[in-house]
Lab assay of single mutants.
Amino acid sequence: EKIKSDFFELLSNHHLDSQSRWSKVKDKVESDPRYKAVDSSSMREDLFKQYIEKIAKNLDSE
């Protein structure tokens, strides 16, 4: 859970929106230790998708 929250924090530093693509974001964040803390690339992508869904819901509710 800490790894997930750290990863979300990392993503939040990059001002993403619901149109952001993992392939582009990954290049910007892959040197960060919070990125490396997530064991697998599929898990990183899953967390990215969860984060994008979360910010999309937040935008819808505003």
Rank of each mutant, 00 (worst) to 15 (best):
L59M: 13
L16H: 03
D17G: 06
S31L: 08
D46M: 13
H15N: 14
K54E: 14
P33I: 05
V25W: 09
H14F: 14
E53Q: 11
R21K: 14
A56D: 15
Q19S: 13
W22P: 00
K28M: 13
S31G: 12
K4R: 10
R34D: 01
K28G: 07
Q50F: 05
N13A: 08
I55Y: 11
K28S: 11
L10A: 03
Q19M: 13
S5V: 08
D32F: 00
N58G: 10
E9Q: 06
S12W: 03
H15V: 09
D46V: 12
H15Y: 10
H15P: 09
E30P: 00
P33G: 05
Q19C: 13
R34P: 00
V38I: 12
K2E: 10
K26L: 05
A37M: 06
F7D: 00
I52P: 02
K57S: 12
Y35S: 10
I55H: 13
H14R: 05
A56N: 15
S20N: 04
S31D: 15
I3D: 05
K54V: 08
N58C: 08
E62C: 08
S61D: 09
S42E: 14
S41C: 11
S41L: 08
Y51K: 02
I3V: 09
R21Q: 11
H14Q: 12
D6N: 06
P33L: 05
S5M: 13
V25S: 03
L47H: 02
R21C: 10
K36G: 07
S61R: 12
D46P: 01
E45G: 03
F7S: 01
D17L: 02
D32T: 00
F7Y: 05
S61P: 14
F48N: 02
D39S: 14
W22C: 00
I55S: 11
M43N: 09
E53C: 12
K49N: 11
P33M: 07
I55A: 09
E45A: 07
K57F: 08
S18V: 14
S42T: 13
L59S: 14
K24G: 11
D32S: 01
D60K: 11
F8R: 02
P33C: 07
I55Q: 10
E53M: 09
V38G: 01
I3Q: 08
D39G: 14
K54F: 10
Q50G: 04
D27N: 13
I3A: 07
E30K: 15
K49M: 09
N58F: 06
K36A: 11
H14K: 03
D46H: 12
E62R: 10
S5K: 15
D39A: 12
A37C: 06
N13S: 15
K4P: 02
K54A: 10
D32G: 00
S41Y: 07
F7R: 00
E62D: 14
S23Y: 05
K36R: 11
F8D: 02
D60R: 06
K2R: 09
S61N: 07
W22R: 00
P33Q: 07
Q50V: 08
K4N: 05
F8V: 03
S18C: 07
S42M: 13
L10G: 01
K49L: 07
H15L: 09
K54H: 12
N58Q: 09
R21S: 15
W22E: 02
L16C: 13
I52W: 09
D39L: 11
D6L: 02
V29M: 14
S23G: 08
V25E: 07
N13L: 12
D27P: 15
K4Y: 06
K28I: 14
H14G: 03
P33S: 10
L10V: 03
P33R: 05
F48I: 05
W22S: 01
H15F: 06
K54D: 05
D17A: 03
K2M: 04
D60V: 10
Y51F: 05
L47R: 00
S20K: 03
K49S: 11
V29W: 03
E9D: 12
R44C: 13
N13Q: 15
E53W: 07
D6C: 02
K28E: 10
M43P: 02
V29F: 14
K4M: 07
V29L: 14
L11F: 01
L16N: 02
H15S: 12
S18A: 13
Y51M: 02
L11T: 01
K2H: 07
K54G: 11
E53D: 07
I3R: 04
L10S: 02
K49R: 11
Y35T: 02
N58T: 14
R21A: 11
K24E: 15
I55C: 12
N58I: 07
K36E: 07
S61F: 14
S31C: 13
K4S: 06
A56H: 09
Q19P: 04
Q50D: 12
S40E: 09
L47C: 02
V29G: 00
K36I: 13
F7P: 00
Y51N: 04
A37H: 03
Q19Y: 13
L10E: 01
E1H: 05
S40Q: 07
D60N: 12
D46T: 13
S18N: 11
D46W: 08
K36Q: 09
M43Q: 14
S40G: 11
D27G: 15
F7C: 01
E1D: 12
S61M: 10
K24F: 15
D32C: 00
F8S: 02
E9C: 05
I55L: 14
S40D: 13
D32K: 00
E62Y: 13
I52M: 14
D60G: 13
Q19W: 08
L47A: 01
L59D: 11
S31F: 10
E1P: 02
L59I: 11
K36L: 11
K26N: 04
E9T: 07
K49Q: 14
S41I: 08
R34F: 01
K4D: 02
E45M: 06
S40T: 10
D60C: 08
S12T: 07
E45Y: 08
M43F: 08
K28V: 11
K24V: 14
D32E: 02
L16V: 15
S20V: 05
K26R: 10
Y35K: 01
D27E: 14
K28T: 09
Q50A: 12
K49H: 15
S41Q: 14
D46R: 10
K36Y: 05
K57E: 14
K57M: 13
Q50L: 09
K36M: 10
D39I: 11
S31I: 04
S40A: 05
K24Q: 15
F48E: 03
F8K: 02
S20R: 03
F8W: 10
W22Y: 04
K49E: 10
I55E: 09
V38F: 01
D32V: 00
D39E: 13
S23R: 07
K57G: 11
